[in-house]
Structures are given as C-alpha cells and as structure tokens.
C-alpha cells in the first residue's frame, strides 16, 4: 500500500484546494451571510488540515499523543458538521415555523437515539471508542438527513437548491464515514492507510458537490410566509384526530367481532 502515500497526499492537497475554493465561493457569492454555520464548518475543516500539517510535520509528539490530538480536533469539526446540518434544516422549513419546531425536536431525538444505539452496540474495545463515536455520529447524521427529507415529503415541502444538494453532500459523507469506520474496526492494522485515503476521497466528493451548487448566490424568499391563525390548526387538527381515532376503534371492533 505504499502507493497510497503519494495518492493520499494528492487527495489531501486536492481536498484543501477545494475547501479554499468553496470558502472563496461562499464569500464571493455572499452565501456566507445565508449559511454562516456552514461557512464556519468549512473554515474549521481548513484549520483542521493546517493543524494536521503542524502535528505530523513539525511537532515531535509520540504516536499516541498525535492520535489523541487529531481525534480531539476531529470532534470539534464533527460538532460543526452537526450544527451545519441543523442550519440546512432551518432553511428548508424556514417558511413553516410551526412544523419546523416540531421537526427540529424530532431530529434532535433521532440523532441522540441513533448515536447512543450505534455507540452502545459497538463498544467492545475501549481503545476504539473514538472510532465508535465517529461512526455513531455519522450514522445519526445520515439518519437525520433522511428524516429531514421524509418530513419534507410528508408535508409537501420541496427543498430548494442548493439546500437539497448540500444535504446530499452531508449524507454521502456521513454514510461513507459509517462504512469506512466499520471496515477499519475489522481490519485495523491493514486498512489504516486506505481508510485515510477513502475518507479524504468521500469528503472531496462532497466538496465538489457543494462547490457546484454554491457557485450561484442563494436567494432568500422575498416575502414573509402567509400563515393561518393559530386557532384554525387546533380546531381542525384535534377534530380530525378524534374522528380518525373513532373510526379506527370501530373498525377494530368490527374485526374483533368477526374473529369471534
């Protein structure tokens, strides 16, 4: 796997170039005003790269210390990624304040539950706990994005570009983190170099997608949303639910009667 050394360096260099290009696009098109958290995430990723260069080429720490330092920075960048995805969710449902609050809560619960489950099921070796945490966050973010699109479809909300493609970029990267980390867990010693390389490639693919969709300025909605009075929802919704419940109970009773 010696060839991966130069290939990995090339992939890393390409990734840094794309990150800088994306940051330039965000500033040039003034999209950083609409997506401040996403911009902060890209800045954090660039700083992370610079920090890695310092760690691996200029510091004289031992391998364990290097690994801990690298993972701690990765943790911060992952938190930024979570915040950036939440920002996208906010933009998708920006005109629907009622369901947006509910969807935010559902996504937060989904992220917590999936992350806890993925972390708990994989916790066998203490030395791999950072890997498990990374994978758990990846799986929970991928689930959250799918849930976001599920809600959008359920409420007939069509996510506009670039929101849709940005979400897909995050999804692809998160999914790949899950797969990559799972394979690394099994082939820890032989897969390390390839793991780094494939991780970089998947992030580069997401960067390409984001660059492509953010080359245009994102326009906010020109007019505020037309909302219904709050009382209408409560009247209609509770009535529909009551009738549905009654209907369900009566159908259920019918089935029981037929069974007996």
């Amino acid at each position: 796997m010696a060839f991966l050394g130069s290939l990995g360096t090339a992939a890393w260099a390409l990734s840094v170039v794309l990150q800088v290009c994306l940051l330039g696009l965000l500033v040039y098109r003034r999209n950083f005003l609409r997506f401040p958290v996403f911009t902060a995430y890209i800045v954090a990723a660039i700083l992370q790269g610079a920090y890695f260069v310092y760690l691996y080429y200029f510091s004289h720490w031992d391998k364990a210390a290097l690994s801990e330092a690298a993972w701690s920075v990765q943790g911060l960048v992952t938190l930024m990624r979570v915040a950036a995805i939440m920002e996208l969710c906010h933009h998708v449902f920006i005109r629907y304040p009622g369901i947006r609050t509910m969807i935010f809560r559902a996504l937060a619960i989904c992220v917590l539950v999936v992350a806890t489950l993925a972390f708990a099921f994989g916790q066998r070796a203490l030395s791999l706990k950072l890997l498990y945490a990374d994978r758990a966050v990846g799986l929970s973010l991928a689930s959250a994005i799918v849930l976001l699109f599920l809600f959008a479809r359920y409420y007939h909300v069509q996510p506009r570009e670039p929101l849709q493609s940005m979400s897909i970029g995050f999804f692809l990267y998160s999914c790949f983190v899950v797969l990559n980390d799972s394979i690394l867990e099994v082939f820890l010693y032989t897969y390390g170099a390839l793991w780094n390389f494939l991780g970089l490639l998947s992030f580069t693919a997401s960067l390409l997608l984001w660059c492509a969709v953010l080359r245009h300025a994102y326009e906010e909605w020109p007019t505020p949303p037309e909302l219904l009075p709050a009382g209408i929802y409560h009247d209609v919704s509770s009535e529909v639910n009551l009738r549905l419940k009654l209907l369900d109970e009566r159908l259920s009773r019918f089935l029981k009667r037929n069974r007996t």
Partner: peptide, 29 residues
C-alpha cells in the same frame, strides 16, 4: 390537515404524531 399544519404558526407534535399513527391504522384496518 397537513397543509393546514404546515401553514400554522405553531403545531402540536403529539397531535401530528397521533394523526400519522391513526392514519396508518385506518389504512391497515
């Protein structure tokens, strides 16, 4: 009902979830 929910300034998550669950139950039955 979903359109009204999406156009309302606030919704009750419990009611939304209950309707979704009841709708599924209705279709099943």
């Amino acid at each position: 009902a979903r359109v009204i929910a999406s156009l309302s300034p606030e919704v009750a998550p419990a009611q939304e979830f209950a309707r979704f669950r009841l709708h599924l139950a209705f279709l099943y039955r």
